[in-house]
Simulated scan of single mutants.
Amino acid sequence: MKKYILFDNDGVLVETEPLYFEASKRALKEFFNVNIQFDDYMKIMTEGNGVWVAAPSATKEEIIIARNKRDIYYQQYLKKEDIAIENVHDVLNELSKKYKMGIVTTSRRVDFEIIHENRGITDFMDFVLCVEDYARSKPHPDPYLKGLEKFNATNEEAIVIEDSQRGLIAAHSANIDCAIVYNEFTKTQDFSKAKYKISKLEDILKILD
């Protein structure tokens, strides 16, 4: 019986992934004259690498400068674009009546706080784990293993809600059932290891009944 839900953030609770791509694409072009293609970007993300591998001749110092500018662009987008996903609050309200919930994200804490300022989503959560809170990021299992630890839960008691292959690999490696929610941005990725595939977040209520 499931008692705990571990949510990915980007693409599941808020629609931020296209903005991160645009910020990364902009910085790569500006600093390294690299026009990264969407498919190449998705492959890099799935493997858990930084986007800067697309500029193999870049020095560490150049990457630091480009990364800082990318982060500025990303935060600018976050503050002006609509990133809400429909019915998230209603779904979380229903789930909170039966389950304990947490967010496990690869976002930096500073970006996460911008994303969720006055949004109310974190009010439903027992904790939030950001990229600073575990040793290795997705697709390694560390983030979700840390989530189990926070709940003092077994893997059988938990379910992960993800939208990316990288997150699915992390959940699968942690031996936790994973439901993939459809996202237009990640629709071409391999979700064959998912326990469930749902078309929208509301469908998680049917799975858990």
Score class of each variant (00 low, 15 high):
I72N: 12
Y99G: 11
N68I: 09
D82C: 00
R108G: 03
K69Y: 14
V53S: 10
I72T: 13
R67D: 12
Q76W: 02
I103D: 05
A58N: 09
A135L: 15
T105P: 00
T105L: 02
N152D: 15
V104I: 11
S107H: 00
G147W: 05
G102M: 13
L129K: 03
D123G: 05
N118T: 00
N93F: 07
A54C: 07
P141W: 08
H140S: 13
V131E: 05
I114V: 09
P143E: 03
H140C: 13
E113T: 05
F151M: 14
S96M: 07
E132C: 03
A153P: 14
H140L: 12
G102C: 15
E157H: 14
I63N: 08
Q76R: 10
E156K: 15
A58S: 11
E132T: 06
S57R: 08
Y99M: 11
S137W: 07
P143C: 05
S57P: 02
A158P: 10
F151E: 14
Y134V: 06
D123H: 10
G120H: 02
K150C: 12
T105D: 00
D71K: 11
V110P: 00
F112C: 00
K97G: 06
N87H: 05
D126R: 15
N93I: 05
V110T: 09
E157P: 13
I103F: 06
Y77G: 02
R70L: 14
K150T: 08
A158C: 15
A135H: 11
C130A: 01
Y73Q: 14
E132Y: 01
D71W: 08
K69F: 11
A153V: 12
R108V: 00
S107Q: 00
I83L: 01
L148Q: 06
H89I: 09
I85V: 04
K79H: 01
I64L: 08
E94I: 02
E157C: 14
V88S: 04
R70T: 12
M125A: 10
G120P: 02
F124K: 09
C130S: 03
E113S: 03
K80Q: 10
S107I: 01
A54S: 13
R136S: 13
L145Q: 09
A135F: 12
A54N: 09
K100E: 15
I63F: 08
V91G: 04
M101I: 13
M101Q: 09
E81R: 03
V128N: 02
R70F: 11
R108H: 08
E113A: 03
G120Y: 03
D123Q: 04
R136H: 14
A135N: 14
R67M: 06
K98R: 12
Y134I: 11
P143Y: 01
Y134P: 04
I103G: 08
K69P: 08
D126I: 09
Y73F: 14
T154V: 06
A158E: 09
A84H: 04
D142E: 11
Y73K: 10
L78D: 02
H116E: 01
Y144H: 04
